[in-house]
Amino acid sequence: MFRFIMSRLLVVVAVALALSVVAFFLLNLAVDPAQAIAGEEADLLEIEQIRQRYGFDRPLITRYFEWFSGVLHGDFGVSYYWNKPVGELLLERLPETITLALMSLSVTILVAIPLGCAAALNPNTFIDRMALGVAVSAQAIPNFWLGLMLIILLAVIYPIFPVSGDKTLYHFVLPAIVLGASSVPPVMRLMRTGLLEVMNADYIRTARSKGYYGWRLLIRHSLRNALLPVVSVLAVQLGHKFGGSVITESVFAINGLGRLALESILGADIPTVQILVFVFAFTFLALNLLADILNAYLDPRLRT
């Protein structure tokens, strides 16, 4: 198991290195940083002065190594737009995003897994069709629309939850439902097909011949096997929630990383954007690693 984790970690480090290169070069080649800081009305002289002051006239490679060694030491650079160290910005915004991501993942798990189980245990019945209907609607409804509808219904007409903001956990309930709902369909379908397949497996027949039936059979002999593919997909979905909550965070006025990304892009704030790209990508990597480890824990055949 230790060996398994170590070998996966090595892969993660290699990919992370490649990622940092891509994040840095892509942005610095696509946008002239000096122009971005100077603004659109600046004349050539101003831009040239900025270029020299910030050191943008030096070779890209040198700047990359400078930046990356900074990142390794925890120095993420300074934002031109916010006039703050990027690290500080991240720390301010991270808790909101983590709260939202974890809460919406819980919504996904709590809805999708029981729904998928119910559908798989009653295939081609009313329950199955209902579950599929819920999944399809959740997939078809756009995030911002669902968000607005929930605000109108549960915050304005029946003021159960606050309209927007991020002061208490209460504020996160509606956005978590919106964000979580979008991941319900893939997870629920995977759970359904996975469990259907498992229920037809020979070892389930063995378990039944030993006297297992109903819920006991599901929990003791099928769920773990059926969860294996679901775990990988949940990791990807959680990754999306970290990086892809731009719209939801905007609708509910939550000051998370998604909004930070949006504002930094609009402000052409290269130091912040490149760190965010790197952080989002790295989150995916870390979550995939976590999913692999979890899967290896669940399935002994993967532990080699």
Binding site: A201, D202, R208, S209, K210, R224, N225
Partner: peptide, 21 residues
């Protein structure tokens, strides 16, 4: 009855045992 009075052995030993336990 199942397992207690009537027990079964199946044809395919490769798949008849649960792989994760």
């Amino acid at each position: 009855i199942s397992g207690k009075k009537i027990a079964m052995i199946f044809q395919e030993p490769m798949t008849a045992l649960n792989p994760v336990y």
